[in-house]
């Protein structure tokens, strides 16, 4: 399965400035592990030392936050759109 990952500005230097990258994997965890394997400077920025999602990183599969649909075990299908977004203070606050 190959997913298209949208990379936020803050992480783009680690992927040579690309806005999207294609990564294989059948779960979100696999895709992110493979992402770090291809772009090693992302080490510690996507997954923390315990292998969990970075506290300030939100990952969406087809716009659904993976923390609520199975976390790193959430399945990934061919062509799925995976968006990485930093957690920020947002809204009309």
């Amino acid at each position: 399965m190959t997913a298209v990952l949208r990379i936020p500005t803050v992480l783009r230097p680690a992927v040579h400035g690309q806005t999207t990258v294609e990564i294989v994997g059948t779960t979100v965890g696999e895709v992110l592990t493979n992402l770090v394997a291809v772009y090693p400077t992302l080490e510690g920025q996507v997954l923390d030392a315990d292998g969990a999602l970075h506290r300030f990183l939100n990952v969406y599969v087809n716009d659904d936050d993976v923390r609520y649909i199975g976390g790193l075990n959430a399945p990934v299908a061919d062509g799925d759109d995976i968006t990485l977004l930093p957690a920020v203070a947002g809204g009309a606050a």
């Binding site: 500005t9 920025q45 300030f56 957690a87």
Partner: peptide
């Protein structure tokens, strides 16, 4: 159900991920 705001380019000012924020 929570709807995450479309962040657009306004998050570009982040220097690194650790500048992130959870209320």
């Amino acid at each position: 159900w929570a709807i995450e705001p479309p962040s657009g380019e306004m998050v570009d000012g982040l220097r690194n991920l650790d500048d992130g924020y959870v209320p």
